[in-house]
Every structure is written in C-alpha cells, then in structure tokens.
C-alpha cells in the first residue's frame, strides 16, 4: 500500500525531532530516508511503525489513517537495527512469532516460517538459537521474521550497520532482489549514501527534522539542490560563482559555460570529482592546476590540486607533485546550489 505522511511533528522536550514532515511513498517502491545521525530519520520511521506517537500531523496507509494506532494494530513490520530477536526462542519460533500472535494455526505458521527461511537462504537453520548464528545470519532472520507477516509496508532501521563492508554489499543486493520479487513497499533508514543509492528507487535526504530534498535517487545524486545535500552526498568541490550571462558563470578559476539555468546573480556551484577529467586537449581545458597530492585507488586516481579542487581521473599513469594538469568539466555536470 502507499504511505502518506502529512505535516508530522515530534518533539522530545526542547528538541524538535521532526518539523512538519511531508512524505509520499508509492506502492511497491523501495524508499530510503538518508541523513546524518540526529536528523530525525529514525524518529520518522518509528512514527510510521507506531513505536512513537506523532505530536501533530497524520500518517495514512493505503487511504486509512493510522496515526493513532499502536504498533501491534498496524499492517507494518520492522527490521530493527539490533535485530531484536528473541534469544530464548529458536529461529523458526522467532520467524513464526508474529503469525502465532495473530492466532494463525501453528502448522500453517511453521510452514510459512520455513518458506521464509528458504527466501533468506537459511534452510536448515530453523532449530538454532539466535546466539548460535553470525551477525549476517541474524540479520536475515530478522528480515524473515518481519516478512513472514506479509506486511503492507516493511520498515528497515539501519539494517546493515552491524555488518562488515563486504557482507553489507552482498546483503544490499539480496535485499533489493527480495524487494523486487515480493513487490512490497520498503522504507529503509540509513546514513550510508552508497547503500541508499544501491537499493532504493527514491530517497529523501533529511536534515535536523526536515526533508532537505526528496526524489529519484539519480536526480538527488546528480542535482543536489542545497549545500547540505551536496555535502552529504560528497560532491566535494564547492565554488563561489557569479552570473555573467544566461549560461556563463565567473569563478576564481575562470569563466565557465554551464548547461543549467542560473537562478542567482552570485551563489555557489558544485562539481563532482568523478565528472571532471584530466585532458591534454587545450581546447577542452576548463581550468589548469598543479597536483598537490595524488591518491592511487586501483581503477582510478584522486588528485588534490593546489587550488583546492579535487579531480578524479581514470588515467593510471602516476602524477608528480607540482605537475601542471589541464582539467575538463562538461558543462552539464556543473550544479547550481540554491542557498
């Protein structure tokens, strides 16, 4: 079902955790709430789950207002950050817990739980206790336990924060595949932009209780609107600029041609290092700079120039310190920031 959140507010004493948040998540969509710690993303998730009550505003699921319903009456399930598996129950009992709570016959619940074990590729682990499993396996059990209830909406609270980097990538792929197979609505909270980009259809970047930017993952990544979003998504290069004409800006590195409309007379532009390239063609040169530091990253190199800009190049030939390089910036990769 689709989820709508209207003007939700939540205060903890003096702290405003959510300030009039609006959100719309379509049916069958993988949506991610992205933001630094303390931005209110987890609070928003808990309001949707029914683990916190909104102070004001409205939460609607499939056209029904669920704002005041407690967690156990919502067709919503959560994968907790700490997994919160019941340590005294076996894996199978954990997975069938929600079904038994809803008085579904035991045989049916066990059959469903076994089916879920297959889905998360843990066949044969049903009789183990959670503390006999690895972190990655426990994470799968938590996912299976939530999915066994066939929720209209699945919430994931930083589900991969306890996994190591390699496992995380694997779980991200699996999570995406499971979501696409089940065609359920998933909402995930994370502070890892890579994770958000990998798994989601759309995402919202949050900042101190407000949604700073929301949209298709590609559009948010390519066209951040504010300095906060650009910085959080690591565009790296922030350059003061002045408008010269409709498609030209003046910066301290020279006059650049840009593709986007320029919304101000003076403001900040940003360019991702990976969108720039080192060139030998004088005609394509946007600006020149000297290499201060170069970092070898295997399939690419990162260059820190003495003028403060950061460039990535696919060239694997080493750069000497102080070497002058010509940098090309395609005009469509220059992003105007609105603040």
């Amino acid at each position: 079902m689709d989820l709508k959140v209207f003007a939700v507010c939540k205060n903890y004493g003096e702290v405003e955790a959510l300030k009039y948040v609006d959100l719309k998540v379509e049916k069958g969509e993988f949506f991610t709430l992205l933001g630094p710690s303390g931005c209110g993303k987890t609070t928003l998730l808990r309001v949707i789950a029914g683990l916190e009550m909104a102070d004001a505003g409205m939460v609607m699921l499939g056209g029904e207002a669920i704002t005041w319903k407690p967690a156990n009456e919502r067709p919503v399930n959560t994968v907790f950050q700490s997994y919160a598996l019941f340590p005294h129950l076996t894996v199978l009992e954990n997975i069938s817990f929600g079904l038994i709570s809803r008085r579904i016959p035991k045989a049916e619940a066990i059959a469903k739980a076994k089916e879920m074990l297959d889905l998360v590729q843990l066949e044969g682990f049903g009789d183990r206790k959670p503390d006999q499993m690895s972190g990655g396996q426990r994470q799968r059990v938590a996912l299976a336990r939530a999915l066994a209830n066939e929720p209209e909406l699945l919430l994931l609270d930083e589900p991969m924060s306890a996994l190591d980097a390699k496992l995380r990538v694997q779980v991200q792929i699996e999570l995406r595949q499971i979501q696409q197979r089940l065609e359920k609505t998933f909402i995930m909270v994370t502070h890892d932009q890579q994770e958000a980009l990998t798994v989601s259809d759309r995402m919202a970047v949050m900042n101190v209780g407000e949604i700073a930017q929301m949209g298709d993952v590609r559009s948010v990544y390519d066209r951040p609107k504010s300095k906060f979003v650009a910085d959080f998504l690591q565009t790296q290069n922030f350059i003061d600029a002045e408008r010269v004409s409709d498609n030209r800006v003046k910066t301290e590195y020279g006059e650049w041609t840009v593709a986007d409309d320029i919304p101000w007379t003076s403001g900040v532009i940003t360019v991702r290092p990976e969108n720039m390239s080192v060139t030998t063609d004088t005609a394509a040169c946007t600006f020149k700079g000297r290499v201060a530091t170069s970092l070898y990253r295997g399939c690419y190199q990162e260059l820190f120039l003495d003028n403060g800009l950061q460039v990535e190049t696919e060239s694997v030939q080493p750069f000497a310190k102080g070497e002058e390089v010509m940098v090309h910036i395609p005009e469509e990769s220059v992003v105007m920031l609105n603040d």
Partner: peptide, 26 residues
C-alpha cells in the same frame, strides 16, 4: 532491559501477556 525486544514483540502483533512472556520475563 533491552526495550527493542518489547518493541519487536509489539511490532509482531503481541498483546500484553505475550509481550511480558517473551520480551520481559526472559
């Protein structure tokens, strides 16, 4: 106590007794 277990039990449609039995008592 780890209150996440209580929340998990609630999230999995438990009533009061079931929350006590599986999240608080153990």
């Amino acid at each position: 106590m780890d209150w996440a277990l209580v929340e998990a039990a609630r999230d999995l449609y438990s009533g009061g007794w079931r929350v006590f039995r599986h999240a608080i008592l153990p």
